[in-house]
Structures are given as C-alpha cells and as structure tokens.
C-alpha cells in the first residue's frame, strides 16, 4: 500500500472485505454481492460515526442496486462543504471500480473528467485491480473519494471556485 497516508490505510483495513465476484448482469450472484456491499457500507458508516468522522450518505437509487446517489461533505476552516454524490455500478464490476461523480463540481477543477467524474490517484486503480473482488463501494469511497476531497476541496475553496452555502446565500441577497 505504497502512496497512501496512514489514516486511510488503517480505516481501509477495518472495512469488511467482500467475497462474491458478481456484477449487475449476474442475477442471483449480484443479489448476494449487493448484500455484502450493504454490510460493508453499514460497517464503514458505523465506524465513521463512532470516530466522529461521518462524511457521506449513500443509498441505492433503484431496486437492482445499480445506481447510487447521496451526499458527501468536507470540513475546511471549520466550515462544512457538501456536495451531491452519484455513480453507476459498471457492467464489468467488480473488475472495474465505480466511477464516482460530483456533478456540482463539473468543470471547476482539472482533477475531474467530464461529467463530474473524479480523477483518481495513480495508486487507486492498481490497488483495486489487486484486490478484486474483495473491494466494494465502501472501499471505493474510502480510497477514492475521501483522499480526493481532502486534496481538492481546500484548493477549490481557497481559489474561490467553491463558496460556502451561507456565503453564497448572503452574496445573492446583497
């Protein structure tokens, strides 16, 4: 796990691993996988809450569990910045990771592909490939989105590209 900060590493090791290698086109096996996804997400959310580091909400948008939507947030200079989060489970999952999207930040940073897909570090995809099928949605959030927010939100706020919602509201009123 070269290239990861110790915090991310220790959090990652506490998220339950998955065992079923199945994607959304695999019928009953996918249902089994979906159960494992829920278990990992529940454990990860509980862990974040007990560590006072709650930072996302995510839930399946359809009964098949192939589209997920929610929110994520990041605290910078004591202010909370919250963003919509969404992604699809790709047909080749879990061989390929879900591509996490923050649509509100589309076009605001270079560290993003078009459509608001976040640009992951060079370390993410190799680690995901190595750990297929043990990593799931919870691992993608922990390894992909958390470090991205930590690296990009301070830059976006300091450069004025992202404004706090209170600031945005007050400047709109004036």
């Amino acid at each position: 796990m070269e290239g990861w900060d110790p915090n991310t590493k220790s959090t990652l090791t506490q998220i339950p691993l998955l065992t079923t290698k199945a994607g959304p086109r695999d019928g009953a096996a996918w249902t089994q996988r979906l159960k494992e996804e829920y278990k990992a997400l529940i454990a990860y959310t509980q862990m974040n809450k007990s560590n006072d580091n709650d930072w996302f909400r995510i839930s399946a948008d359809n009964p098949e569990g192939t589209r997920w939507t929610g929110k994520c947030w990041y605290v910078h200079n004591l202010l909370k910045y919250e963003f919509d989060l969404q992604f699809d489970i790709p047909v080749t999952y879990p061989a390929t990771a879900p591509e996490l999207e923050l649509p509100e930040l589309d076009g605001k940073t270079q560290k993003m592909y078009r459509g608001g897909k976040i640009c992951l570090t060079v370390h993410f995809k190799p680690l995901w490939a190595k750990n297929c099928p043990r990593f799931g949605i919870a691992h993608a959030l922990c390894l992909g989105l958390a470090p991205w927010l930590a690296a990009e939100i301070p830059i976006l706020v300091d450069s004025g590209m992202v404004k706090h919602k209170d600031d945005a509201a007050s400047s709109a009123e004036s």
């Binding site: 159960k35 829920y38 278990k39 997400l41 529940i42 959310t45 509980q46 809450k49 909400r57 995510i58 839930s59 399946a60 929610g70």
Partner: peptide, 10 residues
C-alpha cells in the same frame, strides 16, 4: 433488512 439498516444509519 440490510437496506433498511443502512437507511437508519443515514
């Protein structure tokens, strides 16, 4: 049940 459990946490 798992879905509900995650919703409760959310």
């Amino acid at each position: 049940d798992l879905r509900k459990q995650l919703e409760a946490l959310n």
